[in-house]
């Protein structure tokens, strides 16, 4: 088992440092137990593990959608666990998130969904009147071309296929021009081929922009194929942390339990 020690946590070039992170929704039933992780300025990290291992909770703690019970999450030097209100929102807009089941606003157009990514910067009256800054709209068109949906700007989100929706989800997150991209089971409702395309797209767009990615994923093959680092979680703790090549069947048995499925 390879783990990151906390001495590495202070090393330079880290964009996200998680120290002794604990989370329990119910007292004495911890979902996360003493998580220590350091993420660099780039590269894709895949977090694998069975359902209920705490993967989702982990990345939700990072952008403050879930508040940690104890520990620190230093994102560019700021402890996310101590932030609230305006400061939390200001930090949160630097973290893009691609959601499970797409989570587009179904009744908004593709363009409106992309512009949602700018809501951390746009005052309410502009959002209300849909008077988004021209630079944001230009960026949205660029991203639409990049995800291959250039002609879909005015299509309503609920008219898109699953793969198309998740492309829009990725573009929405990138609209934030984030310093970190989180993805929570982005392929869970997609077919195998589309899953590969989505992870590939995310990987390409993020590396072209130099954004580090943390992706929760069930599919071990996909994780190995695209990630430069794999974190294995089981019952709220990290049981593997290393390059894909180092991930053996023994590790997988530790992470998921049992042998027969491998």
């Amino acid at each position: 088992m390879t783990t990151v020690t906390s001495s590495e946590a202070t090393s330079s070039g880290a964009s996200l440092v998680i120290r002794r992170l604990c989370k329990s929704y119910v007292l004495d039933k911890p979902i996360l137990r003493d998580i220590d992780l350091v993420f660099g300025e780039r590269g894709i990290t895949a977090v694998i593990g069975p359902s209920g291992a705490g993967k989702s909770t982990l990345i939700r703690c990072v952008n403050g959608l879930v508040s940690a019970t104890s520990g620190e999450i230093l994102f560019h030097g700021e402890d996310m666990t101590r932030l609230s209100g305006k400061r939390l929102r200001e930090m949160r807009r630097r973290i893009g998130m691609v959601h499970q089941e797409y989570s587009l606003v179904e009744r908004l157009s593709v363009m409106e969904n992309l512009l949602t990514g700018r809501l951390g910067y746009v005052p309410a009256w502009r959002a209300w009147l849909r008077r988004f800054p021209p630079a944001d709209i230009a960026q949205a068109y660029e991203l639409l071309d990049a995800i291959g949906l250039g002609d879909f700007a005015n299509r309503r989100a609920d008219q898109l296929s699953g793969g198309q929706r998740q492309r829009v989800g990725i573009a929405r997150a990138l609209m934030q021009q984030p310093d970190l991209l989180l993805a929570d089971e982005p392929t869970s409702s997609l077919d195998p081929k589309t899953s590969v395309e989505i992870v590939e797209l995310m990987s390409n767009l993020a590396s072209a922009r130099g954004i580090p990615v943390i992706i929760n994923i069930h599919n071990v093959d996909l994780a190995k194929r695209f990630a430069s680092r794999i974190v294995g979680m089981s019952q709220g703790a990290i049981v593997f942390d290393g390059p894909p090549a180092a991930l053996t069947e023994k590790h997988l048995a530790d992470i998921y339990g049992g042998q027969s499925w491998i």
Partner: peptide, 17 residues
């Protein structure tokens, strides 16, 4: 929640989410 995770203010979450 997806809208909230972009760092949108409460008013903006209401308007777009």
């Amino acid at each position: 929640e997806a809208v909230r995770s972009t760092g949108a203010s409460f008013a903006n979450v209401l308007i777009m989410g």
